[in-house]
Design a protein around this nucleic acid. Sequence first.
DNA 1: AATATTCTGCAACTTTGTTGCAAAAACTTT
DNA 2: AAAGTTTTTGCAACAAAGTTGCAGAATATT
Lengths: 144, 144
Amino acid sequence: MSTNRSHDSEIDHILKHNQLSVTDSRKKILELFLQANGALAHGDIEKKTGEKFDRVTVYRTLQAFMEKGIIHTIPTADNAVLYALCKDDCTEGHHHDNHVHFVCNHCGNTICLEEVVVPEVKLPKGFQPAEVQMIVSGICSECH
Amino acid sequence: MSTNRSHDSEIDHILKHNQLSVTDSRKKILELFLQANGALAHGDIEKKTGEKFDRVTVYRTLQAFMEKGIIHTIPTADNAVLYALCKDDCTEGHHHDNHVHFVCNHCGNTICLEEVVVPEVKLPKGFQPAEVQMIVSGICSECH
DNA sequence: AATATTCTGCAACTTTGTTGCAAAAACTTT
DNA sequence: AAAGTTTTTGCAACAAAGTTGCAGAATATT
Ligand SMILES: [Mn+2]
Ligand SMILES: [Mn+2]
Ligand SMILES: [Zn+2]
Ligand SMILES: [Zn+2]
C-alpha cells in the first residue's frame, strides 16, 4: 500500500474514530473517496482499485462505511446507487445530508452541493415527511 | 385475457396512440398500472402477472412503455427502480414530470403527488439545471 | 386469406449482489 | 515482542437481476 500519502493521517483518524480496524482495503477505498471530487459507484471503485481486492470486500467495506455514517447513498434514475462522503457530522444510523445532489449529463459526474439546502415543500393533508432527496441533473460548472 | 373490463378501451387507445401493437402482455401490464394507486417495481409486475409472461417480456414491455413516454421511472435510495404512469402529456424522449414523489416508510407505497410541483432551487454559479427530481419519504395519508 | 411485420418465449449468458467458512491480518494482552 | 483474541479477507458457491439472438407465434396490413 504505497499510494498518494496526502490523506494518510486523515484516513487513519476517520477509521479509528469509527471503531473500524485499519486495513489496506478500507484505507484504499476511503482514499478514493477523499480524492474523488464526486460520488462513486460500486463499479467505479472496483475499477480504480484494480484487481487489488475481492469484489466481496468492496461490498462489505461500503456497507461498513454506510453503517458508520462515513458515506451516504445518492439515488439515481438509472438504478446505479452512488456513494459519497458525508461531510456533515453524520453518525451511525442517523444521516442528515439535506443538501442537493447534482448529476452532470456531460461528464457524468455526480457531486454533493453541500451549500445548497433542499427547500421545504408543502405536502397534501395527511402526508408526514421525514426525509427529502433532491437530485438535479444538467450541466455542471466544469463542463459549462 | 379476461380481466377487469373497466379500463379496456382506455388501454387500447393508449397502445394504439403510441403505435404499439396490442398484445396480451402489454394490455395486462398497462392495466396493472391503471389499477395501481402507486408506482410498481419490475418485481411487483412479475408477481402480479403470475406465470403468465416471461421475465424478458416484462423487461421489454417496460422498456417500450418508457420509450413511448407512457411511464416514467422514480429513483429510490435502495436501488429499486420504480415505474409509474405519466399523467402529463409526455412524449417519446421528452418527459416532464416535475412533480414530487412520496415514498411511505410504513406501507412501502410510492406515489406521484401530481399536484405538488417541485420547487425552484438556486444553484451555485456555472450549474445549469435541466431536470429536477424530488423524493420525499415519510408516512403517507393512508397510513397516518 | 395470404403476406409482412412485430412481438414473445426460450436458452444461454453476463452482471450484480449474498452467504458460509477457513486462512490471514489487525488488535489486545501479557 | 510473542501469544492469544477478535476482526477482516478471499474464495467458492450460490441467487437474483438484466441482456441478447433467434425461431415460432401473434398481430397488423394488403
Ligand atoms: Mn451528498
Ligand atoms: Mn410521477
Ligand atoms: Zn460535468
Ligand atoms: Zn403508507
